[in-house]
């Protein structure tokens, strides 16, 4: 049996290691598990990017019928990633700043950093600039569910806040309290 990359129905190319049965078992040898964790981390992040999935939950590994089926399960070899193993991987991802638990103080769901908050800040500012919305006051809702779908459609609030905070540090955005909550104003950069 040769282990080869497989293309899923959503068009994602699974690496050949996804066809290896022991890949789905948490390894008792720490050095080996480090390799497994590394491969899972890369797989989870690239799949999330491919499907634009912002979050993952331990439940996604528990029951089938969710966005993660193609990755957390391999029906050809009848293997699946167990929630306990996913929990271990997520812990490692959070520790290495590739994900963050959201909401905080629990470990059942996490935001995946297939783009870091700093990278999202750039995307956000570019979007505001190219859509001609500098100096306008925008609600968070305007950004998360824009009338014209953008890269930011569906971005979790916690991640959006981090991106805005980053822009705030370089004086490119300003949080504003408005009638029905909070909003943001993007500022044109001086000298540009």
């Amino acid at each position: 049996m040769a282990l080869s990359p497989q293309t899923t129905s959503s068009g994602f190319l699974l690496p050949s290691i996804h066809s290896a049965p022991p890949f789905f078992t948490q390894q008792p040898n720490q050095a080996t598990q480090a390799i497994v964790t590394d491969h899972w981390t890369r797989l989870i992040l690239s799949y999330a990017r491919h499907r634009r999935l912002f979050t993952v939950r331990l439940d996604d590994a528990q029951a089938s019928g969710n966005d993660w089926d193609e990755v957390f399960r391999n029906t050809r070899i009848n293997r699946r990633l167990l929630p306990s193993h996913l929990a271990y991987i997520l812990d490692d991802m959070v520790a290495t700043n590739k994900a963050v638990y959201d909401p905080p103080k629990q470990s059942n769901s996490a935001i995946l950093y297939w783009r870091t908050p700093d990278e999202w800040a750039e995307v956000l500012y570019d979007w505001a600039e190219t859509t001609g919305q500098l100096n306008t006051i925008l609600t968070f809702y305007d950004i998360i569910e824009p009338s014209v779908p953008s890269q930011l459609s569906g971005i979790p609030l916690a991640l959006l806040r981090k991106a805005i905070a980053t822009l705030g540090k370089s004086n490119r955005a300003q949080l504003i309290t408005i009638a029905d909550g909070e909003g943001v104003r993007f500022l044109a950069q001086s000298g540009k």
């Binding site: 290896a20 049965p21 022991p22 890949f23 789905f24 078992t25 390894q27 008792p28 040898n29 050095a31 080996t32 497994v36 009848n78 293997r79 699946r80």
Partner: peptide, 14 residues
């Protein structure tokens, strides 16, 4: 498995 890291464990084997 444990000492040499030459093999991987599969707990979901048939």
């Amino acid at each position: 498995l444990l000492r040499d890291g030459l093999c991987w464990l599969d707990e979901q084997d048939e």
